[in-house]
């Protein structure tokens, strides 16, 4: 039962990112984050630690958040990848983005794309989270500037906005 191993040299991959197919040619050792940033030019997700300890690289994989720095790109074939770049519809912001601006839910902004993706996913699974559920849902994203009170307020406000839009 020998298996068809690919690599270690670069191999062709197709990644489904924000509804588009991208053909890349990368080594199996490449992380999803490195391919998004360096091959696709999608620099919204950030490299903060490379070890799943900060959350700046958070993307949504098949509907759930993941750290792109700990995810191999080759592990993402046939998966739906959503990044911050796919969130806006034309010029219009996602309610989470609107709420973050209104409530100043950021400071330096480096962690913000990751925070946004976590908040979007949280609200997709739980449209009316309690304060505790927001804290638990956002626990995987460090904000060293300490914008947390406004991040909590932003997620709560986004939930309201989305509920109002849904009505």
């Amino acid at each position: 039962m020998t298996m068809p191993f690919r690599g270690p040299a670069a191999v062709p991959l197709v990644l489904h990112v924000n509804g588009e197919d991208f053909h890349v040619f990368v080594e199996p050792r490449r992380t999803l984050l490195s391919v998004l940033r360096e091959e696709l030019g999608l620099t919204g997700a950030k490299l903060g630690c490379g070890h799943g300890q900060c959350g700046a690289c958070t993307v949504i994989l098949d509907g759930e958040t993941a750290y792109a720095c700990l995810t191999l790109a080759i592990d993402c074939e046939d998966r739906e990848i959503r990044t911050i770049e796919g969130l806006m519809r034309g010029d219009s912001l996602h309610p989470v983005q609107e709420a973050l601006i209104a409530h100043d839910g950021y400071q330096c902004g480096f962690c913000t794309p990751g925070q946004v993706m976590s908040a979007v996913s949280l609200l997709e699974h739980n449209p009316r989270p309690t304060d505790d559920e927001i804290r638990e849902g956002m626990a995987g994203n460090v904000c060293r500037c300490g914008a947390y009170p406004n991040i909590i307020a932003s997620v709560a406000a986004a939930a309201e906005l989305m509920a109002a839009e849904g009505d």
């Binding site: 039962m1 020998t2 298996m3 050792r29």
Partner: peptide, 26 residues
């Protein structure tokens, strides 16, 4: 990371048969 090759397993038996100290499950 050191470069490595990668394969998708279709069954546990197939995967196990290929494992050794230098081939690890993911």
């Amino acid at each position: 990371m050191h470069p490595f090759a990668y394969a998708n397993a279709n069954s546990l038996e197939e995967a196990a048969a290929n494992l050794d100290g230098e081939t690890r499950p993911l």
